[in-house]
Amino acid sequence: MQRIHNAIQLTGLSPDDLARLYAFPAQLDAPWVRANFVSSIDGAATSGNLSEGLGTPADRTVFMMLRELSDVILVGAGTVRSENYGGARTDPRRRRALHDRGIGGHPDGAPPPIAVVTASAALEPGARLFTDTQVPPLVITTAIAPADRKQQLVDAGADVIEAGDIAVTPKRLLRALGERGLLRVLTEGGPHLFGELLEADAVDELCLTTAPLLVGGTARRISLSAHEFRSPMTRTHVLLDDDGTMLTRWARR
């Protein structure tokens, strides 16, 4: 690996190198929560109201590897709607190889399901989440959500999980995933879900891409919460791409 000023040049890494850098801890017995976000240099989490507006080739490469490694992709309902989420598309051979190495993936190469958090079960049964996927999505909702709405999502192919009476708390959410053996958790947003997980001290690491852009405007940050908190983090690595993209990985101390 070629290192420049204590950072790693992305172009010198093979897919196996990248998998080792982002491997989940071995032999997990509880969910490990990894967040992945992109922001501009001036802190915007979106451009043109979409995180995709900040994407670069380097960000896409790491984005795909993080999905390859995970057991489940956790997102909020607002992000599913605004980003028009469909099912994850991953490489079956790589997923099997990662599983054989004990660092991620899946034994039969299946992609990770999308798990959507929505207290009201307010999702459209005809959305890409249900119609453009290889595996059924998980809808994590509440007992108080309308029964007919939940049934519509079941009929659309979802696995509907009640993880709270009137709200889905991080503790109940992660317990529901853990009970299904989904321990390598990748959350891709949005800011409210990430903020709730951070406030509950439930985030183990953050993978943050800084795109080489200044965008101004009124775009949101990557996390939003009701209260301010201070969570010390340790930088585990920095990757650099030739276009100026910087990819960092931060772990909880």
Rank of each mutant, 00 (worst) to 15 (best):
P112H: 11
T169W: 10
R235T: 15
T131E: 06
L224Q: 15
L69N: 12
R235Q: 14
T131S: 12
F37S: 07
T248N: 09
D132R: 15
G190F: 08
G48E: 07
T169I: 07
G217R: 14
C207P: 00
N6D: 15
T133F: 06
G87Q: 02
L98I: 09
V160Y: 03
M233E: 05
T209P: 03
S120A: 14
A119L: 02
Q2A: 11
T61H: 06
D108F: 06
R93N: 11
P112M: 08
S39P: 00
F130Q: 06
V215H: 08
G87P: 06
L247A: 00
L186F: 07
T236F: 03
L138S: 07
G195K: 01
Q2C: 03
I166C: 00
G43F: 11
L18V: 14
G195Y: 04
Y85S: 04
E196S: 13
Y85W: 13
A7F: 06
T90N: 05
A115D: 01
A7I: 07
L198K: 00
Y22W: 13
F229H: 12
R96L: 02
E188P: 02
G109N: 08
G190W: 13
R93W: 05
R230S: 09
P57D: 04
A219R: 06
L10P: 00
V80G: 01
A200R: 10
D155A: 14
D16A: 15
L153H: 07
T248K: 01
T133Y: 11
M64D: 13
R20N: 10
A58L: 04
D204R: 05
A145K: 01
A30F: 08
L239F: 05
A163F: 10
T234E: 14
D242G: 03
A200C: 04
W250N: 11
V203D: 02
G157T: 14
G55R: 13
V80C: 10
D148I: 02
L153F: 12
T187R: 10
G87I: 13
G178R: 06
G43H: 09
L177S: 12
V75K: 01
A219W: 09
G190A: 08
L50N: 07
A127H: 14
